[in-house]
Design a protein around this nucleic acid. Structure first.
Lengths: 110, 110
DNA sequence: ACGAAGGTACGATGGCTGTCAAACTTTGAT
DNA sequence: ATCAAAGTTTGACAGCCATCGTACCTTCGT
């Protein structure tokens, strides 16, 4: 089946802060994260609003996936992207929230 | 008493998230921030424990200063470094705290 | 006045990474 | 079967940045 096409995902316990920060420092990748966070739902690769080519987008998704920031799974020919927000907040408390808040320019009323 | 030797410091309202993240993504610079945060006091440039040469350290201090993360002022021939934690938390709520927290719980992977 | 200490400024360099185009693969529909 | 859609892979390239050594500049102590 398509299990072979499902890419590997790291356990967040094995991902370091350095790797997560390197993933989130790129504005394109932070755009992906922000769109996922504000949508509150999974998004297809092709449905993101990104200022780069498809191959570059693939690269960014890979970096985010390997840093444990997103989870990817196939639906037909499309690849879905899910934000691993709960796990991330467990490993690095407050980090994702601070970034999303700063990106929005407004405080998040929890 | 040459105040001309006091370097310029940006207003945090003029510093973007991108610039702050680029400053904090470098492990050496994050080491500087962590040492300042845990010390809870200003530290001389030469008193930091850094794995780079002096000229490289100067570069890192400059990047942090221009990103609004630290404030520098002279005391004799020494340059003191202060963490602008309060201002930083006003501009990017929770960001610095999340980083310091994450750094405290993770060992350095060489 | 002189020397030492503490940092800064200046090139130079090497490695990393974000970028793209082109070719390929897999899936779904006709 | 065949074609289109959606991503991936590969290879190449350009630009940036962390790093260093060396030379230089201030300030303090003697």
């Amino acid at each position: 089946m398509d299990e072979g096409r499902t890419p590997p995902h790291p356990d967040l316990a094995q991902v370091g802060l350095q790797q997560v920060l390197e993933a989130l420092v790129d504005p394109v990748r932070r755009g992906i994260v922000t769109q996922l966070a504000t949508a509150g739902a999974d998004i297809r690769c092709g449905d993101f609003d990104l200022p780069v080519s498809k191959s570059t987008a693939t690269h960014h998704f890979k970096v985010l996936r390997e840093a444990g920031v997103i989870r990817q799974y196939y639906v037909g020919t499309s690849r879905m992207n899910a934000l691993r927000d709960t796990e991330l907040d467990g490993a690095f408390p407050g980090l994702l929230a601070a970034l999303v808040t700063a990106e929005a320019g407004a405080p998040a009323t929890t």
